[in-house]
Amino acid sequence: MKKTAAPLKALKAAFPHTIPIFAGFWFLGLTYGIYMRASGFSFWYPMLMSLTIFAGSIEFVTVNLLMSAFNPVQALAMTLMINARHLFYGISMLDKFRSCGWKKPYLIFGMCDESFSINYTADIPEDVDKGWFMFFVTLLNHLYWFSGSTLGGIFGSLLTFNTKGLDFVMTAMFVVIFLEQWLKEKNHSSALLGLGLSLLCLIAFGADRFMIPSMLAVLGVLTLLRKPLEKGGEPA
């Protein structure tokens, strides 16, 4: 009984934290599945990709990659460019994942923006196993995305509305993530620096080549200004 009590208690504690993610992931997942079907792919594609990739932005980009000429170098560069933030997520979670045992590989694989946000900031009750809590947060979010994408892929062929512009949901997703972080942070210096540097790189390198320079610029400047920014974020 004790072996099953700990996971069950952790599941009950984790589930309420993931309810807002459920609404967002299901809508985005359905949209992704429909977008894949509208692009000419079978429902197997969004189903398997949401299960094995589990990175919403990359999955949307993969639609264009699958429809264009085979270019593995471009695919690798695009993936690293879009998901570079996960490097910092991983560093932040090193101590939290250290004692998770067999759950650690899955926690690393399934760490998306939303799972990271919950697992890093959640006030986990003392009588709840932290490893199991983080595992269920990650698993539930994964299931939400997988089920939404699969249903979108299955029923997407039955929908007859005009799907032009549906891929804009990816841009909207990043805007929402940015706004959520903006509302959570009291000090907006890092966000403003990121916007300013990205705009400068856009002007200097153009729309097709500004992404990598802007990410390198943001990384370099924020690294140099880390201590002043952390001091500025401390409560008075």
Results as ranks from 00 to 15, higher is better:
M1Y: 10
L8C: 07
L8P: 00
K9F: 05
L11M: 15
H17K: 08
A23R: 06
G29M: 03
L30Q: 00
A38V: 07
S39H: 08
S39N: 11
M47G: 01
I53G: 01
F54L: 06
A55N: 14
S57H: 09
V63Y: 03
S68P: 11
Q74I: 08
L76C: 04
M78Y: 06
M78P: 04
L87R: 08
K96W: 06
F97V: 05
R98V: 04
S99P: 01
S99K: 08
C100F: 09
K104S: 13
Y106R: 06
M111R: 05
S115K: 02
N119A: 11
E126Q: 14
G131P: 04
F133V: 12
F136E: 00
Y144E: 09
S147E: 02
I154A: 08
L158V: 05
L158S: 09
L158C: 05
L158N: 13
N162Y: 05
L166G: 03
V169R: 05
A172F: 13
F174S: 04
E185G: 06
N187C: 11
L192M: 14
G194V: 09
L197N: 04
L200P: 07
L202K: 12
I203S: 12
A204S: 13
S214A: 15
M215K: 09
A217D: 01
G220H: 01
L222E: 01
L225Q: 01
L225K: 10
R226C: 03
K231E: 15
G232W: 08
A236L: 11
